[in-house]
């Protein structure tokens, strides 16, 4: 699969990445090259093979749906990392125009 500049721009947009012209060109050729290598997976017969996402056999580990108490100082330290913080809340840019 050969990706052109428009494809790369589209992927970067989906991934929310601002890329320079130079980056767009570089990633276009590098990612095409990697995909060419990965294409060998198509030669493997996977008819009747189930996909694997979990390897140790665990299924559906449930937890009770309840609020857990967390160390207050740790909560404070976590919130302090936000670049914009006001009145005990993390400030974000407006979502709707």
């Amino acid at each position: 699969m050969k990706l052109n500049k428009k494809d790369i721009q589209h992927i970067a947009n989906l991934a929310r990445l601002e890329l320079t012209e130079k980056e767009l060109a570089k990633y276009g050729s590098q990612i095409s090259n990697i995909l060419k290598y990965i294409d060998q997976l198509q030669e493997v017969d996977t008819a009747n093979v189930e996909p694997t996402a979990q390897v140790t056999g665990l299924t559906n580990v449930f937890q009770e749906d309840k609020v857990c108490v967390w160390d207050k100082d740790e909560v404070k330290a976590a919130l302090k990392q936000a670049p914009e913080f006001e009145g005990g809340q993390v400030k974000v840019k407006r979502v709707l125009d």
Binding site: I11, I31, L35, L41, T52
Partner: peptide
Amino acid sequence: IMLGTYALSAGYFDAYYLQAQKVRTI
């Protein structure tokens, strides 16, 4: 991030991610 975004994007999921997970099983 870009390679993964591409592999998971509409139209390519079956050919890449799903196939990779199946070969992972083998």
